[in-house]
């Protein structure tokens, strides 16, 4: 379980996250919605250790993880993906995935020269795992393609794939659906649900596509102006006056009125 208490992050005079407090239950798929500039990505970045917070506290299962650097959070099973897909462009998709697990035995100079067999065994296992992940994501045909050259949507899948290479506790997905077509989005959705059910991953999903959120997420948290505005199921959120004001817009309100 991740607890965020009164988290602040300021850039100069701008308060990107302004006292956010929220809880993410283990085993849930929590949706994080809100207008652009609400501080969702900044919240992610602060939790994931990219930015250090200006104030507040983040705990993982009671352990204080505030401001830990990203690679240490990784070891605690806290992973994230990026809004704009990141990849090692000059490596193949398979190599991209194989990069992920940390502390591989090939990482010490000693093993590089003298532990060849151990490394080879480990690489073989990793390779099999990477291929399995690629198959799961239905992009096995891209295994040997340079990651810099595959499509934007496929890069997004690769992002998700990275989180599957290790046993993650909690995965922060920053707009996995942005720039992805419907079919691919459904594939991603399926993958998320399966990972959640079968492997017990906890997900936090930033997304603007309400259908996608509705299909996956319970609960949904709505942020605006760096604060948490409301929390609940998607239908509760949709009915919340403040949320409609800040994010969903009055169009939806009118529509709901008509429907009623």
């Amino acid at each position: 379980m991740i607890r965020v208490e009164n988290l602040h992050k300021q850039f100069g005079g701008f308060r990107a996250v302004d006292g956010a407090t929220l809880e993410i239950a283990s085993g849930s798929i929590t949706g994080l919605i809100g207008p652009n500039g609400a501080g969702k990505t900044t919240l992610f970045n602060v939790i994931a250790g990219v930015h250090s917070p200006s104030g507040g506290k983040v705990t993982l299962d009671g352990e204080d993880i505030t401001g830990l650097p990203p690679h240490e959070l990784f070891h605690k099973g806290v992973l994230r993906t990026f809004q704009i897909a990141h990849e090692y462009g000059s490596m193949s998709c398979r190599e991209n995935l194989m990069m992920v697990p940390a502390d591989q035995s090939g990482e010490t100079l000693w093993n590089t020269w003298f532990g060849r067999k151990r490394i080879a065994d480990e690489e073989r296992a990793l390779r099999a795992k990477a291929d399995e992940v690629l198959e799961f994501l239905t992009i096995e045909h891209l295994a040997d393609h340079k990651a810099g050259q595959v499509s934007g949507g496929q890069k997004k899948l690769l992002e998700l794939g990275r989180t599957m290479m290790v046993d993650a506790k909690i995965v922060f997905l920053d707009e996995v659906g942005a720039g992805v077509n419907r079919t691919l989005l459904n594939t991603i959705g399926d993958a998320i649900i399966r990972l959640n059910k079968e492997r017990g991953y906890t997900f936090v999903v930033i997304e603007h596509d309400m259908d996608f959120i509705g299909r996956l997420c319970d609960p949904v948290i709505c942020m605006a102006e760096g604060k948490v505005l409301a929390e609940g199921t998607l239908s509760e959120i949709k009915a919340n006056e403040q949320v409609i004001e800040a994010y969903l817009g009055t169009g939806l309100k009118n529509k709901q009125k008509e429907e009623a």
């Binding site: 994931a48 990219v50 650097p69 990203p70 690679h71 990784f74 070891h75 992973l79 994230r80 990026f82 990141h86 990849e87 090692y88 462009g89 000059s90 490596m91 190599e95 990069m99 992920v100 697990p101 940390a102 502390d103 591989q104 035995s105 090939g106 990482e107 010490t108 100079l109 590089t112 490394i119 690489e123 990275r162 290790v166």
Partner: peptide, 20 residues
């Protein structure tokens, strides 16, 4: 692997950090 992590770090520092 060590060399690859150097390349990874050089290629995309953010991603490298977030992959441990």
């Amino acid at each position: 692997r060590t060399g690859k992590s150097m390349r990874a770090f050089s290629d995309n520092e953010d991603l490298a950090l977030l992959s441990g």
